[in-house]
Design a protein around this nucleic acid. Sequence first.
DNA 1: CACGAAACCGAAAATATCTTTCATCTGTGA
DNA 2: TCACAGATGAAAGATATTTTCGGTTTCGTG
Lengths: 315, 315
Amino acid sequence: MTSEVKEIFARERGPGGSASAPPAPAALAAKVRTLAPSMTRSMQRVAEAVANDPAGCAALTVTGLAELTGTSEATVVRTARLLGYPGYRDLRLALAGLAAQQQSGRAPAITTDIAVDDPIADVVAKLAYDEQQTLADTAAGLDTVQLGAAVTALASAGRTDVYGVGASGLVAQDLTQKLLRIGLIAHAHSDPHLAVTNAVQLRPGDVAIAITHSGSTGDVIEPLRVAFERGATTVAITGRPDSPVTQYADHVLTTSTARESELRPAAMSSRTGQLLVVDCLFVGVAQRTYESAAPALSASYEALAHRHRAGRKGP
Amino acid sequence: MTSEVKEIFARERGPGGSASAPPAPAALAAKVRTLAPSMTRSMQRVAEAVANDPAGCAALTVTGLAELTGTSEATVVRTARLLGYPGYRDLRLALAGLAAQQQSGRAPAITTDIAVDDPIADVVAKLAYDEQQTLADTAAGLDTVQLGAAVTALASAGRTDVYGVGASGLVAQDLTQKLLRIGLIAHAHSDPHLAVTNAVQLRPGDVAIAITHSGSTGDVIEPLRVAFERGATTVAITGRPDSPVTQYADHVLTTSTARESELRPAAMSSRTGQLLVVDCLFVGVAQRTYESAAPALSASYEALAHRHRAGRKGP
DNA sequence: CACGAAACCGAAAATATCTTTCATCTGTGA
DNA sequence: TCACAGATGAAAGATATTTTCGGTTTCGTG
């Protein structure tokens, strides 16, 4: 087969081309090795460059790659053809894909703990990975029966009190904000005295929710106990299903406990799981009370839109 | 800023460009969602096509994509620019990479929206998946240079004020709590009047952080503006990198914008991304100030352990 | 060792693709 | 309704890719 015929052959075979390869996606390095023997010297140089550094070559134009390998544009195109692509443009596209795959393949190596000297990019990756893990674990471990029962109780509650201190206090406030938006009567308490004072007012049909990762936070257990004894429906959101707080909880919702360390305090990962549970409660309640929740949601949206527009009038 | 100036600006920022993004690798779908609101109608059509079918679009030339979306080549290029690439060619390369990743990557999980009649187990799965997605997108889209700069400023700040209202107010408090634990002087403000009053006290070397998903919340922008004018280092954590709040921000940290709907308000998913950013800031600062942070962390742990033990003495 | 054919290779022309310019259009607020 | 700012696409201009074509090297043969 003469060179010219080969070129013509390569050029002319369309989508249904007779020969072997579909524009190879990832098996490029292998293809290079396979075809290398049948390549001319210049083409080998190009193929080698491509196989060694897909990402780098993807960033180059024909001219650039030709210069890099000390060859010409024509040779680069010929090589691309030999590798099974219609032209250099397509080879370049495939190269970009390959580079991206290699990139993402390297990702799950971030299982180690965060170190003091980790570069900031690693910190981001590790934290994101960890929180994703926490979400997955929490979702998998959540008892949907308990969750459903809690939702039912909330949906028909006369009033709802939520207890939490420290980081969990913020989660408590988050839940409260959401419930208020769909027209429920809810309060968050992080002051233990006021919490107890209010808990005394609860009656059967009302709901009390305690949020504590350790399950051993006295300031949160105490108001829940009072609510429990007053006959309210009580819910505990905790990472320790065997902890003291569950004594007074009709329904226990468990969050996953992720690894923690010096630079990654418990508060950080527990919060992620707690928030997922809180979101589930909210959506569940919104579903059950959709008739009244939908207008309430729209109304609060409208009210806020006005405040946002105000912000636009910059200098 | 007029349209023309914007185009020139986009064109001229070279490798050392002033603004944020390195040509995003995989965070493209997220970036489309983030920037969509600031796009014109035609550009949105292009962005949508690109986000919906990366593989298909990667196979098209500018002209092809322009025809497919019923727009012009110029619009396609403009969209590519807005998404952070120097031109269409580079967007196309990124698209090919994205397609390859999707191909090799993960199972296309539960992509549908939450419905009113979804069983509770589905709600849990969908919420968890969405929040994971938000985390991944935010992590991928976060500008580590800006993040590093913000960390540096925080680590050496005389005092730090954090502004946020509504759901973002809780995130502000979360950040404040964390910074306090490692011995920094930080305050969260959700009362706009007090926030401004305090902002006036800030001086060069101090840090002010505004947290707002929309970037248009006047109550948060105003104190940041004051802080900016007083010479403090200002940071904005927002889902809209082109919004008014960024006018007064030395460093902009962008959170991903996930799909939202009636049963899944913006506040829910934005919060997840904001918290990740806040965690990154915290860990970054803790690294930089490790000498003093480590003892402070241990100390607060000890102090709390006592309070937890107290809770155990139940009946 | 000389010769010629075949293959290899790259410079430059031809083509395709991408980018920029600029005039027109569209919607908005006074 | 007018004026204006911004959005848009047609077409000119700039790059990149592909093809052509002829010079050079290689290798077999007399």
